[in-house]
Amino acid sequence: MKPTLPLTARAALLSFILFGATVLVWQLAIESSTGTAPNMDPELAALLGPQAKGQSAFPAPMAIFDELVRHVTDPFYDAGPNDKGIGIQLAYSIGRVALGFGAAALVAIPFGFVIGMSPLFYKALDPFFQLLKPISPLAWMPLALYTIKDSNSSAIFVIFICSLWPMLINTAFGVGAVRREYLNVAKTLELGPFRTAWKVILPAAAPTIVTGMRISIGIAWLVIVAAEMLVGGTGIGYFVWNEWNNLSITNVIAAILFIGFIGMVLDQLMGRVQAAVAYAD
C-alpha cells in the first residue's frame, strides 16, 4: 500500500491544480478569441480601441497579474482627490466599515441584552425587527443623504443599519436561550442582576453574539462597496466605479480580488474571536 499524504497537503495540491486549470482555460479562451485585425485604414485605426479591431474585451490572466503587482508595489500614491492608490482606498473603506460596525455593536449588544432578558420586550419588538431586517441597506441611502446631509456619514449610516440587525437579533436570542440551570445556580449563590449578566449570561451567550457579529461584518463589507459606488469620492467601491467608468475590466478584476481578500481577512478575524469564546456544554 502506497503511503498517502496527509489530508491538508492533498487539499492544498487539489486547490493548486484547480487554480492552475482555471487560469490555463482562461488564457486559452482569450487567445482563441483574439481574431486577426481586419485591414483598416491606419488613420482610422489610430482612432479606435483594441476591441473595435477584433480583440477580446476580457483581459488575460497575465494582464491582471501585472496590474496586481502594480497596485501592491505602489499602494499609497495620491494624485489628487479622485485618484489615490489602492491602499488608501481600502483604508477608507475599512475605516467606514469599522465606524459603522463599531457603532452598531455599541447599540446592538446592550440593547439586545435588555431585549433578551425580557420576554415581554422580545415579543413586543420582534415585529419591528422582522420588518426592518430584510430591507436592503442601500434602500436607506436616499433617505440618509436627504436627512443626514453628508455623503460620508450617509455611507457610514448604511453600514450601521445593515450591521445592526444580525447582532441585535443574535444577542437577544443568545441571551434569551441561556440555560435555566445557570441562572438558577446564580440565584442560589445570591448574585446581583449585574453580576449575573456579566459573569453568567455574557459568557454563556458570547458564542451566539459573536456569530451575529461575524455575519454583520460580512454584510457590512458587501454593502460598503455598493454604497461607495453610489456616493463616490473615496473607497474601494469608488475605485471599482472609476475603473468601470473607463471600462477597464483588468482593474475591476484586480479590485474584486482585493475586496475578496480583505473580506476573507475580516471574516477570519471574527472566526478567531469566535473560537476564543466558544465552550463545550
Binding site: 482627490p81 479622485n82 443623504l145 436627504y146 446631509k149 453628508d150 453610489l230 456616493v231 463616490g232
Partner: peptide, 20 residues
Amino acid sequence: VDVIKTAGWAVSRDKSMNGE
C-alpha cells in the same frame, strides 16, 4: 479648488444641496 468626481446627477444634486 478641489474638483470632485461624482457618480451621477442625482448624487451631484444632493451633495450640492447638502452644501458639500
